[in-house]
Design a protein around this nucleic acid. Structure first.
Lengths: 190, 190
DNA sequence: TTATAATTTGACCGAACGGTCAATCAAATT
DNA sequence: AATTTGATTGACCGTTCGGTCAAATTATAA
């Protein structure tokens, strides 16, 4: 039987160290030795918990996208008002970028590589594509309800996820306003 | 004496192949062997023209930032009207992102790594810092002339350069409007 | 107390990487 | 024609990388 307390400690330390390093330097810029040193274990122990560097990255990526999806979609989808739903999701997305800098920086840094990967990072790509699809479906509904401006849902999705690379907190609220203005037909209230 | 025609051909081929690959996969994601194969020469020939991978990257980076600066600043700085100058520069920047996709994607992909590098890529960093400084000085002038909104020039600079990561042409004009709205006190004209 | 299982380690491996160098080839000069 | 110079190549090097494995240590179960 697993010593769950101890396993959770070491495994968690590895994940936390790796996430921090991936956020700072990206997947290719970090070595397994870097992660080992940052987490205080020997490199070969990482392979006891994770079969490869790629799987470790994917697990972190999936955790992050899970957390992002929980922030954005947890309570929103039961709302009948599509405009309010879009507003709330944009708001929560900007909150996420502001408050979870390590996570949002990792997404900003690696999302292109994840999306463009072919034979690698399949699970990461699937996860992220699923997230983008959920966003796009929401904008699709907005278009059908005739509250979206003349903008393709896929384009709206890319706009939102790209401007998430801005991290100066002083302008993220400007960006929120900008997004609402570009996306929704009604003018955002103050 | 140099056989300048022939040297220009091979050297140019190497630079073009490298730029394309760096744009697609980033500095760390491309090997010298990749570049050699893409340019149709043997890897060791690259070292005949460039002492290292880092120097090759820096030469490409400097060319790109030169081109960007030429687009943005070539005729603008003699204009006395600071509002018009800022408008024109934002316009030209969006034009650059739309029309020079390979270059703007390389900047978007590597600018964080360039700015955060410590012992490497010094010339690339210096070049990019210089470019950012020029932008910031322009916004500084805008603030002094009281035409900038309540936004730090350094923040304005980061906003402009970050949203340059958006490549969907359908929304770059929206972004231009957004930038002008956020940065300038007067409303942008249509 | 002993046995077993889980965790952890140090040593090691093959491949890929950035880079070097002597040799060869092609072009230019004498 | 011979020599010199520039361009190009194949073979090779040392280092770093992702990853493996047997042994040792620690924790748990019997």
């Amino acid at each position: 039987m697993a010593r769950t307390v101890k396993e959770n400690e070491t495994r968690k330390k590895i994940i936390e160290a790796a996430r921090k390093l991936f956020s700072e330097k990206g997947f290719e810029g970090v070595s397994m030795e870097d992660i080992a040193q940052a987490s205080g274990v020997r490199k070969s122990l990482i392979y006891y918990y994770f079969p490869s560097k790629e799987v470790l990255f994917e697990e972190i990526w999936i955790q992050i996208i899970d957390e992002l999806e929980n922030e954005l979609f947890a309570e929103t989808e039961s709302d009948g008002n599509i405009t309010r739903m879009i507003k709330r999701i944009i708001r929560k997305y900007i909150d996420f970028v502001m408050n979870k800098e390590e996570l949002s920086k990792l997404i900003a840094r690696e999302r292109l590589n994840v999306m463009e990967s072919e034979s690698q990072l399949k699970r990461a790509k699937t996860k992220y594509s699923g997230f983008l699809k959920r966003l796009e479906l929401l904008f699709e509904k907005g278009r059908e309800a005739n509250v979206l401006n003349d903008i393709e849902p896929s384009t709206a999705t890319e706009l939102v996820t790209t401007v998430g690379a801005v991290h100066r907190k002083g302008i993220l609220r400007n960006i929120e306003e900008f997004l609402l203005k570009v996306l929704l037909k009604e003018r955002p209230e103050h």
